[in-house]
Amino acid sequence: MHIPDGFIDVPTSAAFVGLSAIGVGAALKGARTQLDDKTAPLAGLTAVFIFAVQMLNFPVVAGTSGHLIGAALAAVLVGPWAATLALTVVLLMQAFLFADGGLTALGLSVFNMSIISVWVGYAVFLLIKKILPKNKSSVAIAASIAAAISVPAAAFGFWIQYVIGATGTFSDSAVFTSMIGIHVLIGIGEAIITGLTVTAVLASRSDLVFGWKNNQKVLEIKNV
């Protein structure tokens, strides 16, 4: 969902650079409270893994592909603040080094994937985790459902931007239906990759996983 230059007009793109700057600025502050010497390397590895997996487009329906965004995955692994930063680092690398995602559209893409997708994913994760039993499989299941919803959430972000500032004159409602429809399908792939990855990390280093640590803290308090 890397937006090329030209889809959205310059004033709208500029406004979203501002909004994204506010969001990333807040994340810079917030991540300081959520990261420490022990978890910082995981945030780095999360960015690396997301970069790698974003190269792996999987077929969705005839003639369409999708790839991981990784927003819910990152939020569960390293917390939402660091997730916003990890996604932003990946998007910057892709735009400047690999010509993937327009430079003037960076504010738009960062807003959709580093901010909306991360925070919607994290909110869904917390919600689902609350209603499931407190164990590792629940964390993986909650992460998968969060991932499934985080993808159409990013598509919704694009739609808002399209409604505000599309340079084309095509019907808003047609864009809505197609964008959400296709990204609900891509969300299934996102859910599978996220669930498998969270399961693998929980199996080897659950002590590093943000979405699991919080769980344990709650348990510790209850036990005391």
């Binding site: 487009n57 077929p59 296709i182």
Partner: peptide, 16 residues
Amino acid sequence: ASSSPDGLEKVAGDIG
């Protein structure tokens, strides 16, 4: 990896 257009590209192509 699949070289088909991604979701956004596909929608942009279909709608115009």
